[in-house]
């Protein structure tokens, strides 16, 4: 091996080793939650004598934790649905409007992602109280819909960017109304983007904390809010079990989005397959 080839190989190994070291810093800390949730101890620690499911029993046996889980699920489902519906319609509108107006609308749609949530939450507090939305499900759902909108807007706009605008004209010239065109032509062609936007909106609501802290009091305690209060008050390993639930749900959502993309690409392969 020549000196320069050795140098190249050495530099490459060094680069890859450093990169994976950084990636290990990203991934490894997450994995600590699993053993801690299975600890046989009564306080937050790694298992000593053996593994135990006691904290999962505590979590699933506690109506308060279960109620938080179902509250979070319901809120995420409603707000993701609303954000997807409203965000997708808006993205489609912008897609065809084009020009400066559409750019301005898209920027506004992204704004909730840019403005710090804490600032939004401070502002929402008074309006929500005034509208009687404070500490109510509609109130939290509404706030989470706003927070979920940018995700839908981004994914749906990206999906629309690959759709030929002439498809829309073709549908109209063939006699389809605007609504028929959206339902029969545009929506089927942006489905993967729409679904991943919906999943992102769901996830963003499911682990949203700040708005939940500001806009709710006694009536509502979402899972993140309960975990947060748990960490603040006393660190009981049940929180690790609750955190594992959040993790599992995240992984499920990721799996779902991989499956959605997989199905879409299989479909594309089928559609784009070579003529027999």
């Amino acid at each position: 091996m020549s000196a320069s080839a050795f140098g190249t190989a050495f530099r490459r190994s060094l680069l890859l080793a450093s990169a994976w070291l950084v990636l290990a810093f990203l991934v490894l800390p997450m994995t600590v939650v699993l053993p801690v949730s299975l600890t046989d101890q009564r306080y937050l620690s790694l298992p000593k004598a053996g593994l135990s499911l006691q904290h999962y029993r505590a979590f699933f046996g506690d109506p308060v934790w279960l109620s938080s889980l179902s509250q979070s699920f319901g809120i995420a489902l409603c707000s993701a649905t609303a954000a997807t519906l409203v965000g997708a319609l808006c993205a489609i509108g912008c897609w065809r409007l084009g020009g400066g107006l559409a750019s301005a609308i898209r920027l506004l749609l992204l704004a909730p992602l840019i403005v710090p949530t804490i600032v939004q939450a401070v502002g929402m507090y008074r309006l929500w109280a005034w509208l009687g939305l404070y500490d109510t499900y509609p109130g939290v759902i509404l706030a989470h819909t706003i927070i979920g909108l940018p995700y839908v807007a981004i994914t749906v706009s990206a999906a629309l960017a690959t759709v030929d605008p002439r498809l829309e004209q073709a549908a109209r010239s063939l006699g389809a109304s605007g609504a028929q065109t959206i339902r029969l032509v545009i929506l089927p062609n942006i489905m993967p983007g729409l679904l991943s936007g919906a999943l992102l909106a769901f996830a963003s609501s499911f682990d949203e904390l700040i708005v939940a802290l500001f806009l709710t009091s006694r009536a509502i305690a979402t899972l993140p809010k309960r975990i947060w209060e748990g960490i603040q008050v006393d660190i009981d390993p049940t929180i690790a079990a609750a955190a594992m639930c959040l993790i599992l749900l995240t992984l499920l959502l990721m799996l779902a989005s991989v499956l959605v993309r997989g199905a879409a690409s299989r479909r594309m392969r089928r559609i784009a397959g070579a003529p027999a």
Binding site: G87, L89, I146, L149
Partner: peptide
């Protein structure tokens, strides 16, 4: 054009009332 603007209306209304207004109030 009006129809497509109409599609953006729900999102714009939501953002105007529940996003822009609170920020303006801040």
């Amino acid at each position: 054009r009006r129809a497509y603007l109409g599609l953006t209306a729900p999102a714009l209304a939501l953002l105007a009332i529940f996003f822009v207004l609170p920020l303006a109030q801040v």
